[in-house]
Design a protein around this nucleic acid. Sequence first.
DNA 1: TTATAAATTTGTAATAATTACAAATGTGTA
DNA 2: TACACATTTGTAATTATTACAAATTTATAA
Lengths: 134, 134
Amino acid sequence: MRAYDHLLKYGIRPSAQRIAIMEYLLSHRSHPTSDEIFESLRGEIPTLSKTTVYNTLKYFTEKGVALSLNIDDKCARFDGYTHEHAHFLCEKCGRVIDLDMESSPKVSLLAGMEVNNMQVYLRGVCPECLKKKE
Amino acid sequence: MRAYDHLLKYGIRPSAQRIAIMEYLLSHRSHPTSDEIFESLRGEIPTLSKTTVYNTLKYFTEKGVALSLNIDDKCARFDGYTHEHAHFLCEKCGRVIDLDMESSPKVSLLAGMEVNNMQVYLRGVCPECLKKKE
DNA sequence: TTATAAATTTGTAATAATTACAAATGTGTA
DNA sequence: TACACATTTGTAATTATTACAAATTTATAA
């Protein structure tokens, strides 16, 4: 019931679809795409529509219960863990990996600027792909 | 001739199209999209193709003479200034603004990980749009 | 110069993520 | 129960980007 409680805590009406999507995000820390979530849940919820997945993820992002990541050129990826951390995209295998931040960047803001969100993205080759290369 | 020299410095053959696109990036610090560059240059180079703009910007990014920014959900934006700095997207007007970084983020890397690139993205409302609100 | 190979550019057609929209369904309340 | 409102659904559009092959330009060698 953690997904259910999580949604309530963020003021989101917990429909079956929303619970399933939230549960998926909390139990899969792979930064899934809309399509991956849709394909994984359509067995469980046969009537599920791709539009619902898109709408719901957008709503989650607005409500602050999920992050929308733009690290991947092709499509958005989503993260149910919203505490401050950085993301690494492996350019070989495409995986997105969470990285802890020892210290967040200090940025010179302009006067009278409102900041709602910060993302730190790294790109390169993950340890596994580097090993395969040899 | 700064665009010309810039390309040579990065080992890029300076064709007319490449010079024009590089010159555009150096003289427009607005983080233009492929389409904005294409529309601005088609007067100057009537035969210019959109595919060329895409190919060239991808090539510039690989060669390190330009940055490809994923801060905007809709499409890639490009930056001819490659020194370390952060980017801010105004969610009202859509502008992307350069911000200096006083200190870059310290991220806990995994052992045996190769990092090629880091981006810091902020989102919010720019000073001008905040003023208009009142 | 001339012939040939390589690099670059171009235009068209395909791909694929995302959104618009309106109908259908579900949920809460008087 | 009846009604308003929220949510979901399916289809059709939109649009950024890429694939691809032909055309053009540029460099190289005879």
